[in-house]
């Protein structure tokens, strides 16, 4: 019993040391390494490009869309539109929502700003700090993890020379983590949020069955402005079907047995 307690304590000490070893370089890094959350800080720190005094306004086209979104909800439940509006703001603002955009949304749906902050911090798909034009999200949930998502992330980070949630120098790429995106059958997978064309040309694509080699290819294609084929990257598979084609249900299935009523 004592031995096990000792082992536990030893392991714990090792973990703590490891965490601190990683955490020193800078504060930003600590928060992401220390707390294994996919999102950033849960409070706002003013910066020159992100503070309540920066003005944010929806473009005219998006104002129309906002109106359209609001029309989906009864006029006394305007606050229901908070998520679509935040999403719109995020697309318009190059993939992330500054505080002033949240304030703007709060004004539209007539609630206190804090109610919008609550929603924006809850959903990890809302980025509250700058992201690249292409925001690469690596799935980190169990099935993908078993199929090698950690390796995928490490490759991406190394290739781009960034840390998690950091933007490359040219502003093109950033890498984040996301939880299961419902694509486990083609694990591991990454998704790419493409903010390079504003809210009109905004796309959100899944790249499945990726390998470390393939993700680098995908990144390079994106960098050149090409559009890599979405879906499974395994040439042997079609959609989520098995590699090498179907193995079952090859012919027309037999119809259900039916009694010959006349024979009775």
């Amino acid at each position: 019993m004592f031995a096990s307690a000792g082992r536990l304590a030893g392991k714990r000490l090792f973990e703590i040391r490891q965490i601190f070893a990683q955490s020193h370089p800078q504060l930003e890094a600590r928060s992401s390494a220390f707390r294994s959350f996919s999102t950033a800080l849960n409070y706002h720190i003013d910066s020159p490009d992100n503070n309540p005094h920066v003005t944010f306004d929806f473009t005219d086209a998006n104002k129309e869309r906002a109106k359209e979104i609001l029309s989906h909800y009864p006029s006394n439940y305007k606050q229901s539109a908070v998520i679509p509006l935040l999403d719109l703001a995020q697309q318009q603002h190059g993939g992330w929502i500054p505080v002033s955009a949240m304030d703007a949304v709060a004004k539209i749906i007539e609630v206190a700003p804090i109610r919008v902050y609550e929603v924006a911090t809850f959903y990890s798909m809302f980025n509250r700090t700058k992201v690249g034009k292409y925001h690469l999200l690596v799935c980190g949930t169990t099935p993908c993890m078993i199929r090698g998502s950690r390796e995928i992330e490490a490759t991406l980070l190394k290739h781009l020379g960034v840390k998690r949630n950091e933007v490359t120098k040219d502003g093109m790429f950033s890498v984040g983590e996301m939880e299961c995106m419902g694509c486990c059958v083609n694990a591991p997978m990454i998704t790419v949020a493409d903010y390079s064309k504003g809210s009109e040309g905004y796309t959100y694509n899944y790249y499945e069955d990726v390998t470390p080699k393939r993700v680098i290819e995908i990144v390079e294609m994106l960098r050149k402005g090409e559009a890599p084929p979405v879906g499974t990257q395994n040439p042997l598979r079609k959609k989520s079907g098995p590699a090498g084609g179907n193995t079952t249900l090859l012919g027309e299935p037999k119809p259900p047995p039916c009694r010959d009523l006349d024979a009775c």
């Binding site: 849960n42 409070y43 706002h44 700003p113 804090i114 609550e118 911090t121 809850f122």
Partner: peptide, 17 residues
């Protein structure tokens, strides 16, 4: 002014700004 920010074990009470 007060709200519940974040989710899961990262949840915290605060004012955000």
């Amino acid at each position: 002014d007060l709200g519940m920010l974040g989710r899961g074990s990262g949840e915290e009470i605060g004012t955000y700004v």
